[in-house]
Write a protein that binds this DNA or RNA. Structure first.
Length: 533
DNA sequence: CCCCCCCC
């Protein structure tokens, strides 16, 4: 016995079922069992157990036709459903039983290929998850029906490959609703899971690619105010709120909430916030997570991770000093100018890609030095430093000062390859820094260049494979029409091991926090550490 | 058929 909804396309006639029997039962807005009205919906019993309730079926009794559509759970009851993981483009006619975990607002678009409206939603069942989208008429038909958190039967849909770069849903395909689609609520839904998160520890978020989609959970340690500003690109008013989440890796990350979510967020009681499908963004070395319209943001979710985190934070996490992956400078590099990074971290953070230069500190080894065309004859006048033109008559012309001099001074401009355990990097260094690295004056180097080649080369060999602490400057500079990211050594320092060991101890402390999975271990180690230092 | 996801 199957009951289905019929939308009646013609007026005032008795309907016969698909298999030719008179309709034995109807209910709905109109209780007439004999006549149906145009555009009214009726629930109709069918004796055909093989009937596909979601198909667009034409019913004929000679005069009228009706189309099966709309909402009822009865057609699906007792019907075999298939797991979300089995959805693929080659098997049509699957019936799914899954929970809507997210429904986006309706969006309209208007581009060269046309215009329209759409919404999308996420489905979860025991086997996995999938994303679904409804366009135009399907928006009208299904948008109001689908509710977040509820379970539905869905059948007769189109299956297309999923575009992974726009979704965090782990499925190779996605669903598009069609004219034939039927969706019906399922009230027996206890066995269907809710949103599945794949939380990453916050300390590991410094390693993921920028723009990747991540799940994160943390205690909202700090809340910013709502900030309203106008976007220069779209000229629209935007609202944002920055919050800071910390987890038991004792690391924090900033999250930027937008629009209504920003306005309605209440962080006054330091709630747990869980985010599924947030986008990792980066601005000048500071990372933050931005939820999108397809992200799920849950405050104090009823999940085990949240309870564990609450316990950790309330008992001792709140008292620990937190490392942030959203801060431009971290305290580990204190004493060396801050923002201590490996060369790889500097590259990953895309330092120097904004208008202003970015500085960071690292310990690295000199592995190569270019020795050709690195010492030049410069203007002897104070800080001019401009390369002079040898006039060949023992006079040297500086075009900057517009002056001819009988003398010049040597200056160095060298290219050095630095390497630490993470990667290597070619950097430029100017006179003073170059002299420190070579352990020789520009004058000595310059004089030896043509007179004592062996000595000259030795200046460039001596520093090789020595370690230094470097303060590096990253900046994008324009050469002709080309933009290049350049690294310059702003300062070079001998490795002061007393100082450097303190940095390493700081790192060990933060690593301890990262690896201490049971909360009590973390507290124990950190207290132990604090007691000793 | 969308696929933009914001700002410094």
């Amino acid at each position: 016995m199957i009951i289905m909804d019929l939308t009646v396309l013609t007026h005032g006639s008795q309907v016969r079922s698909q298999i030719g029997n008179p309709i034995p039962y109807t209910e709905g807005a109109n209780n007439s069992t004999d006549f149906i009205q145009e555009t009214q919906r009726y629930r109709v019993r069918s004796e055909n157990p093989t009937h596909q309730p979601a198909r667009k079926e034409m019913y004929n009794n000679g005069q009228i036709s009706v189309t099966g559509s709309g909402m009822t759970s009865y057609p699906f009851e007792g019907m075999k459903t298939q797991p979300l993981s089995s959805v693929n483009p080659y098997h049509t006619s699957l019936t799914l039983r899954s929970r809507v975990t997210l429904k986006t607002p309706i969006k309209t678009w208007n581009n060269t290929r046309g215009s329209g409206k759409l919404f999308s939603f996420s489905l979860v069942d025991e086997s996995g998850e999938i994303r679904a989208t409804g366009f135009n008429e399907q928006v009208d038909q299904f948008y109001d029906i689908l509710e977040e958190g509820k379970v539905y039967y869905i059948s007769e849909f189109i299956v297309k490959p999923a575009n992974k770069s726009f979704s965090n849903i782990k499925h190779d395909f996605e669903i598009t609703l069609s004219k034939l689609t039927s969706i019906a609520p399922c009230h027996d839904e206890k066995d269907i899971p809710f949103t599945r998160f794949n939380f990453l520890l916050i300390n590991t978020l410094s390693e993921v690619d920028i723009n990747s989609i991540v799940d994160v959970i943390g205690v909202c340690k700090n809340v910013g105010d709502v900030v309203i500003f106008t976007s220069k690109t779209t000229n629209t008013e935007l609202k944002k709120r920055e919050i800071t989440l910390v987890d038991h890796s004792n690391t924090s990350v900033n999250v930027t909430l937008w629009g209504e979510q920003a306005e309605q967020f209440d962080g006054s009681l330091q709630p747990i916030v869980a985010i599924k499908g947030g986008r990792m963004t980066e601005f000048r070395g500071a990372r933050s997570i931005s939820p999108m319209t397809t992200s799920i943001v849950q405050v104090n979710p009823d999940i085990a991770d949240a309870q564990r985190l609450r316990g950790w934070f309330d008992n001792f996490g709140s008292r620990l000093k937190t490392k942030s992956i959203s801060a431009r400078c971290d305290s580990v590099g204190e004493g060396f100018g801050g923002n201590w990074m490996t060369l790889q971290e500097a590259r990953r953070a895309q330092l120097g890609t904004s208008d202003k230069p970015d500085y960071f500190t690292c310990k690295a080894m000199v592995t190569m030095i270019r020795s050709e065309n690195v010492v030049y004859k410069a203007c002897p006048n104070g800080d001019c430093n401009k390369k002079v033109i040898d006039l060949g008559n023992n006079l040297y012309k500086c075009e900057k000062c517009n002056c001819e001099y009988p003398n010049y001074q040597y200056r160095l401009l060298i290219g050095v390859c630095l390497a630490d355990w993470s990667t290597s990097l070619w950097v430029t260094c100017f006179n003073d820094v170059a002299q420190e690295i070579l352990g020789a004056t520009a004058q000595e180097v310059g004089l030896s260049e043509n007179n004592n080649r062996f000595l000259y080369e030795s200046y460039f060999r001596k520093p090789l494979f020595n370690n230094f602490i470097f303060r590096l400057r990253a900046k994008t500079e324009a050469y002709n029409d080309e933009k290049r990211l350049k690294f310059t050594i702003a300062k070079v320092m001998a490795v002061d091991f007393n100082k450097y060991n303190k940095c390493l101890l700081g790192s060990i402390k933060s690593i301890l926090a990262r690896v201490a999975t049971p909360c009590s271990d973390l507290a124990h180690h950190t207290q132990l550490y604090d007691a000793r230092h």
